[in-house]
C-alpha cells in the first residue's frame, strides 16, 4: 500500500511538466531580459515577469502560500518599491554602452557560465534518481498555511522573532537614511536670505522673471513678454514649451507693436561706435587744451 503510494508520489504529473516547460523558459527569458535591457524600468518589468513565473512554480510545487506571497509581496510590493525609487532617481538614467572596466564583461560572462556549468553539472550528476516525497499529507485540505504557521511559531519561533527585530531595524534605517530635514540650517533659505543671495549675484538675475506684462495680447504661459520697445523678453520664453520660440511669434509681435524695431527712443547712450569716437575726441581735446 505504502509502496504504491510512494511510487505514485514519486511521479510528476504531466500537467506540472507542461507548466514547467512553459514557465521555465519564460523565467529565463525574463532574467536575460532584465540584464540586457538598457532601460532600468524595462529591467524591472522583465524581473516582474520572472518573479511571477516563479510564483506560479511555487504553487505547482505544492507551496501555495509561498506562491501567493511571492506574487503579492515580492512582485506587488517590493518590485513596486523598486519602480518608485527608479522614478525618484531619474528613469532616464540608462546605462552607457561603454564598459569602463577592462575585461569586466568578458570575465563576468566566463565566470557566469562557469558557475552555471559547475552547479548544473553537480546537481545533474548527484540528483539523478532522487525519490520524491510529495507534500500531499502536509498540504491536505489546505493545511499548507496551517502547518507553515505551526512550524514558524513553534520550531522556528526564535528565528522568527529575530526577523521581526531585523524588520524594525530596517524600517528605522530606511527612515534615518531617507529623512531630509528641510528646515535645518542651510537646507532651505528664508526669504531674507534669498533676497540677499540674489543681490550678491548668486542667481542669474536679481528680480523675478518677467510676466507677460502690460503689452501682452494673451495671458497664456506660451505667450512671451514684450519689452517696452516691443521686442520679446528672452527670459520670459518658457524652456519647457520650446514651440513658443520667439521666431514663431516674431511677425505677430511686430504687428502687435505696430512698429518695426528701430533705434531705441529711450536709449540714453548712443551706439557703441559713436561712443568710442566721442571718447577719443574728448581725450584729444583735453590734451590740446593743455
Amino acid at each position: 500500500m505504502s509502496a504504491v503510494l510512494a511510487a505514485a508520489a514519486a511521479e510528476v504529473s504531466t500537467g506540472e511538466a507542461i507548466a514547467f516547460w512553459v514557465l521555465g523558459p519564460v523565467a529565463l527569458a525574463g532574467a536575460l531580459g532584465m540584464i540586457f535591457a538598457r532601460n532600468a524600468v524595462h529591467s524591472a518589468l522583465w524581473l516582474v515577469l520572472t518573479m511571477l513565473s516563479l510564483g506560479v512554480m511555487y504553487m505547482v510545487q505544492q507551496a501555495p502560500f509561498l506562491g501567493f506571497v511571492q506574487i503579492i509581496v515580492y512582485t506587488g510590493a517590493v518590485m513596486m518599491l523598486f519602480l518608485f525609487v527608479l522614478m525618484l532617481v531619474g528613469r532616464d538614467s540608462s546605462d552607457s554602452v561603454v564598459e569602463v572596466l577592462r575585461g569586466q564583461r568578458l570575465w563576468a560572462t566566463v565566470l557566469g557560465i562557469g558557475i552555471a556549468g559547475l552547479i548544473v553539472g553537480a546537481v545533474s550528476r548527484s540528483l539523478t534518481d532522487v525519490p520524491v516525497e510529495n507534500l500531499q499529507q502536509q498540504n491536505a485540505g489546505g493545511a499548507n498555511v496551517n502547518n507553515l504557521g505551526k512550524s514558524i511559531f513553534t520550531e522556528y519561533l526564535f528565528p522568527f522573532e529575530l526577523t521581526s527585530a531585523l524588520l524594525i531595524t530596517a524600517a528605522m534605517g530606511a527612515m534615518v537614511l531617507g529623512y531630509l530635514n528641510r528646515h535645518e540650517k542651510g537646507m532651505k533659505r528664508t526669504q531674507k536670505e534669498l533676497v540677499e543671495a540674489r543681490f550678491r549675484g548668486e542667481y542669474e538675475r536679481p528680480s523675478p522673471l518677467p510676466g507677460p506684462g502690460v503689452f501682452a495680447t494673451a495671458n497664456s504661459v506660451a505667450t512671451p513678454a514684450l519689452l517696452p520697445d516691443g521686442s520679446v523678453a528672452p527670459e520670459s520664453l518658457s524652456r519647457l514649451i520650446d514651440s513658443t520660440a520667439s521666431e514663431t511669434f516674431s511677425d505677430e509681435i511686430k504687428s502687435v507693436a505696430g512698429t518695426e524695431p528701430g533705434p531705441d527712443a529711450h536709449a540714453l547712450t548712443p551706439s557703441t561706435k559713436d561712443t568710442s569716437t566721442t571718447d577719443t575726441k574728448n581725450t584729444e581735446d583735453t590734451e590740446e587744451t593743455r
Binding site: A17, A108, V123, S124, V130
Partner: peptide
C-alpha cells in the same frame, strides 16, 4: 521530468543574476 529540473533552472537563474551584478552599473 523530475524536480531536479527546477534545481537546474534555479542554477541558471542564479548565474544570470550573478552576471548581472557584475555587468550592470545602475
Amino acid at each position: 521530468m523530475t524536480p531536479t529540473y527546477y534545481l537546474l533552472l534555479s542554477a541558471l537563474l542564479f548565474s544570470i543574476g550573478a552576471v548581472g551584478v557584475l555587468v550592470r552599473r545602475n
